[in-house]
């Protein structure tokens, strides 16, 4: 029966700000399923929701902080990871989750991403990757594939894009995965694993952007991107992230690429400070 939503039944409705709904994202946006998976993963990981700090930057994905009923923080452009680092250092018992887009995390915040991964700070970074700057009208970004048409590259993009799983794993992240918003059960499990994992975990979520990126690249309907993911995704766990390059209309390599143990920033800090205290 088509009827109004029974808020008590919906498992994630308790984590959403009802008064902010419906959200501003376009029809067929991939951020919604990613948020849905994240909110389910909180219950699945059995983390106290009061101990989660959700930090997001600027952009469409930056709006996530305003829509969830967790302790959330909407920060300046590209600085979501520094704010989360500060939160984590001041209150190490908090679970810092950074939820932001590719234009925010990898373009202006690229430096912060690689250094947080190098230090292995205990946080989960969920990067919703839609290959362009969606909110400002679809400009070319650092993840736009070669030859992709955007509003600023109408004849095709000529800059080679970042390979995000390779970037994160080379910088030293302890958990790196990539899923599309069609692989929702896997994405939910990956976010759960990433939140439980101590250390820097990075999840690249490939998401459609139908009215902006899709319209310029012959995928104008929301279903076009989803069918592309369905046909072209190759799931290969433990694959070398070097091979996870994305080309225009090419295959998408998905799976858990890196899952290693490394001492976190807090561990190293405690180790050095205990050594210093022993000498004094």
């Amino acid at each position: 029966m088509t009827d109004t939503l029974n808020a008590k039944n919906h498992s994630i409705e308790k984590y959403l700000r009802q008064d902010r709904m419906p959200h501003i994202w376009c029809s067929g946006c991939g951020i919604g399923p990613a948020v849905s998976c994240f909110l389910r993963a909180i219950d699945r990981a059995e983390i106290d929701p009061n101990k989660i700090a959700l930090v997001s930057g600027i952009g469409c994905t930056g709006r996530v902080a305003g829509y969830v009923k967790l302790d959330s923080f909407h920060t300046t452009h590209g600085r979501a990871i520094p704010f989360a680092t500060g939160l984590k250092l001041a209150k190490p018992e908090l679970k810092a989750v950074v939820f932001s887009g590719d234009g925010d995390l990898v373009a202006i915040g690229g430096n912060h991403l690689i250094h947080a991964a190098r230090r292995n700070i205990d946080m989960t970074v969920i990067c919703v990757n839609n290959f362009n700057y969606g909110m400002t009208g679809g400009q070319v970004g650092p993840t736009s594939p070669l030859e992709a048409r955007t509003t600023t590259t109408p004849y095709g993009n000529f800059e080679p894009p970042f390979n995000l799983p390779y970037l994160a794993s080379a910088s030293g992240a302890s958990y790196v995965a990539r899923w599309t918003v069609l692989h929702l059960r896997e994405l939910e499990r990956a976010i759960t694993e990433a939140m439980i994992k101590p250390g820097f975990s990075f999840i690249d979520v490939i998401a459609p952007c139908p009215p902006i990126y899709g319209r310029m690249n012959k995928m104008p309907l929301p279903m076009d991107s989803m069918h592309y993911y369905q046909e072209k995704t190759i799931i290969r766990h433990g694959a070398d992230p070097k091979e996870a390059d994305i080309t225009l209309n090419g295959p998408i390599l998905a799976g858990t690429f890196v899952d290693i143990e490394r001492p976190t920033f807090q561990d190293q800090l405690n180790h050095i400070s205990s050594k210093v205290n022993a000498q004094v």
Binding site: N9, W25, G30, G32, P33, S36, V181, R185
Partner: peptide, 22 residues
């Protein structure tokens, strides 16, 4: 509705958080 097996995929994939399956 008799076809629904309550797999919950529509609930998960809905970008608007508009579907609930019980």
């Amino acid at each position: 509705e008799s076809k629904c097996l309550a797999c919950g995929f529509c609930e998960l994939i809905c970008p608007e958080f508009a579907i609930t399956v019980s």
